[in-house]
Simulated scan of single mutants.
Amino acid sequence: MKCALVTGGSRGIGSAICQKLATDSAYHILINYQSNESAALETLQKIQANGGSGDIIKFNVADADEVKNALSAWQENNPDAVIEVVVNNAGITRDGLFMWMSADDWSQVINTSLNGFYNVTSFLIQKMLRNRYGRIINIVSVSGVKGTPGQTNYSAAKGAVVAATKALAQEVAKRKITVNAVAPGFIKTDMTGALDENELVKMIPVNRFGEAEEVADLVSFLASKKAGYITGEVININGGIYS
């Protein structure tokens, strides 16, 4: 059984990615979530309704032991399963001006995006190297390439993952493992629900927010065999706001 793991897969962009991978590929989808089990189950039901298969798997990406225990237990219960694709999508924001940013708001954001990338990818990469195949796709942000005021912590975390993407891609390319990053701009999700869309679209050349499904289409392509010669790339999907 060949599988794709999507962290933070229960809602928003993560849920759209889970559904798109299930539709476009034969992968069994592992939907990771931290607290919202009902949203994860809803995503799974949508996958199954379209003829796909999957499991929900609970762990906090920022907790190395939790990641290891959950993935080890799943692997033991599914000895013939191979995780070929990992989408590091889990992330949180704790926005605020840097001068007033608490140590907790800084470290939580870094731990989720950056250490979460390390914890999940380091667990899976040995097997990918042995199998001589893999797709690692990191969901970053326009904040990680352009920098966004009020998001110094989030920009730092995502910018670090951008740099890690470029370095890791060079290390594992000979084993047919690609490592790419996708950097969304303003996408309609719960995370952007509180933003003033009418004001912000004035900054976006295509004059609208993006859809989670549009990000999922790009991720699905990068996860496919067709994208074997693309690695170490950061692909912006932001309506022309920054590239």
Rank of each mutant, 00 (worst) to 15 (best):
V182C: 13
V201G: 06
G144D: 06
T165D: 08
M203F: 14
V201I: 15
K188S: 12
A194R: 11
V179P: 00
K146G: 01
L195F: 15
Y154A: 00
G159Q: 08
S143V: 01
E171C: 08
V161L: 05
I177M: 08
A181E: 11
A160I: 03
A173R: 10
V179A: 07
Q170T: 14
G144A: 10
E199N: 10
G144M: 08
P184N: 12
K174E: 13
A157Q: 00
A164D: 02
V172G: 06
V145H: 10
T152L: 10
A183L: 04
A160N: 01
A173I: 14
M203Y: 13
L168D: 06
V145D: 02
G159E: 07
L168M: 15
V161Y: 01
V145T: 15
A181T: 04
L200R: 04
D190W: 06
K188Y: 04
V201C: 11
V179R: 01
A156M: 02
N198H: 10
K174L: 11
P149Q: 12
A181H: 06
G150I: 09
S143D: 05
M203D: 10
G185T: 02
E199Q: 12
T152P: 00
T189N: 11
D190A: 14
F186T: 00
G144E: 05
R175Q: 15
S155P: 08
A167C: 14
A169P: 07
A167D: 10
V172S: 11
G150A: 13
N153C: 01
D190V: 06
A173P: 02
Q151D: 01
A194W: 12
D196I: 10
I177V: 14
A156G: 02
S143K: 01
T165Q: 06
S143W: 02
T148W: 02
A157N: 04
I177H: 03
Y154I: 05
G147F: 01
D190K: 13
L168Y: 03
N180F: 12
T178S: 14
K174V: 11
D190P: 08
S155V: 09
I204W: 14
